[in-house]
Every structure is written in C-alpha cells, then in structure tokens.
C-alpha cells in the first residue's frame, strides 16, 4: 500500500510536470536569495574581454582637477592639524581595489553601479567607492565576482559629510538628481556657494576628507534645519573605472 502510494506520488510528479514547477520555484528562490548573483557573475565573465578603456572624457578630467585642488588644500590643513594634535588617521592610498563598471543605472528609480570586483577580491559591504572627482557611493552588496554600488544620488541614501571651511556637519541625502541635499545638524550652517563638501574626519564609517562636491545653493531659513544643495564632482554617468577603499577607518 505504501509502495503504491509512493508510486502514485512519483507518477503525479512526473506526469503532471510538477517537477518543472518545483525546479522553477527553487531556481527563483535561489535568484532572490542571492540577489541575482548567478546572472551577474555570468555577465561579468562574458563582459570581461570588452571592458571599457581607461580613456575618460574632458569633463571627467575637469572633475579630477577640481578634486586635486580641493584635496591639496585639505591635505595641507590635515598636515597642520596632525602636527598639532595627531588626531587624524593616516589615509593609505595603496589600500584600494580598481574595478570596471559593467552596468550602470544612474538615473533610474534605483541609482546603482555594478562593478567587476566582488567578495573574491576582498570587496565588502559598506566600503567607500571613489571615481575621478571623488566619492560616488558605497558598496551595497557583493557576489563572488561582482559588487553593487549604491550611488550618493540614490533617493534616500544618507552619508555623513561636512564643510571643511566652517566645520559644520550634515547628512548628505540623495534626491535622485546629481545634486544631493546636505541637511545640516546645526541651526546656523555658515555655508557659502562654492564651499567644498567632504567626508568628515569624525566619521567612523567613511575615510576622512574624501571630496564629495561643491555647494551650489544654500537655504539658511529652511525648517527644521538649514540645507545646501551640493553639486557632485564625480559623475557616475561617465565613469568607467572606480576604486574601492578597503579600509573605511
């Protein structure tokens, strides 16, 4: 009797093609669980021979120049501060992983990049990702061969930042456009158009003094706190190569 039941069950599974649904269900669950890791890894392998070259357009170079100038000034300031107090951590430029952008969604409802380095290369969730011009986002998830980067412009994405000149901290919030909103924590921001916005040296999540952008608009009277609109110096839409900072401290 038990044998017969077993036979009927097996017969139904084969005859009614339930096994197709079963296998499909497992596959779908796998895709959801791994966040599309299989597809991304296969795509990464396929795209490898035709990765974009390192040549960048003029406006990226311009962004790089702005970044260099801002960083030069910041490094000078840092140097002075270190001489006085030795309170800042050392920024190690060798501790980076270079990766190519293999997929880009920088203007859609979700603003993200897929890069061709993953957990296998030491990329971890939460690491900072920089491009020519400065910080562009943070690693959101990884697969063995790829990583997904959530851009600073993604709606709702928040990171800590400050204006070096005024030493005022704020939360940089993505609004979808290339101009995120810096919501200040102080009632009086003292910010001016043209001020450089960088990551805060007080932050434990991001490396200090990474260039983010330049203040384009300030609203001191806004409630509950003043805010500034920041033009990013790095352009995710045109960047082909990025660098992941291994050590966020």
């Amino acid at each position: 009797m038990i044998k017969a039941r077993g036979k009927i069950g097996f017969y139904l599974l084969l005859k009614k093609r339930l096994w197709v649904i079963f296998v499909f269900g497992i596959l779908l669950f796998g895709v959801r669980w791994t966040k599309g890791a299989g597809y991304l890894d296969i795509y990464s392998i396929l795209i490898n021979p035709i990765l974009p070259g390192s040549a960048q357009k003029e406006w990226i170079k311009e962004g790089e120049n702005i970044e260099r100038n801002i960083r030069l000034k910041l490094l000078e300031d840092d140097n002075n501060r270190l001489r006085k107090a030795l309170s800042l951590k050392e920024f190690n430029s060798d501790n980076r992983i270079s990766a190519a952008v293999i997929s880009r969604s920088s203007r859609n409802w979700w603003q993200q990049l897929e890069i061709n380095k993953g957990a296998k290369d030491g990329v971890l969730k939460g690491q900072a990702v920089i491009g020519p011009g400065g910080l562009i986002g943070l690693v959101d998830s990884t697969t063995p061969l790829t990583a997904r980067v959530r851009l600073l412009t993604d709606p709702g994405h928040q990171v800590g930042a400050w204006i070096d000149r005024t030493k005022r901290h704020g939360i940089l919030t993505g609004m979808g456009t290339n101009r995120p909103k810096l919501i200040f924590l102080n009632k009086n921001s003292l910010a001016k158009i043209g001020d450089a916005v960088t990551t805060s040296p007080a932050s434990t999540l991001l490396p200090p003094n990474l260039t983010i952008g330049i203040v384009q608009f300030v609203n001191e009277k806004a409630l509950p706190s003043p805010f500034a609109i920041v033009q990013l110096t790095a352009s995710p839409e045109a960047i082909d190569w990025v660098q992941i900072l291994k050590d966020n401290g």
Partner: peptide
C-alpha cells in the same frame, strides 16, 4: 514606486525629489 519611497523615506517628502520623480 514613488509612493513607496515617500512612505519609506520621510526625508524624500521634498520638492527636489518630487520634480525628479516626475522627470523619471
């Protein structure tokens, strides 16, 4: 998606986000 984002992220109840959403 627009509505879900507004509900999930209170910081997006803002003209800057709404104008961008309309564009998308």
């Amino acid at each position: 998606i627009w509505l879900q984002k507004i509900i999930l992220y209170s910081v997006l109840r803002d003209n800057w986000f709404h104008s961008w959403s309309l564009y998308v």
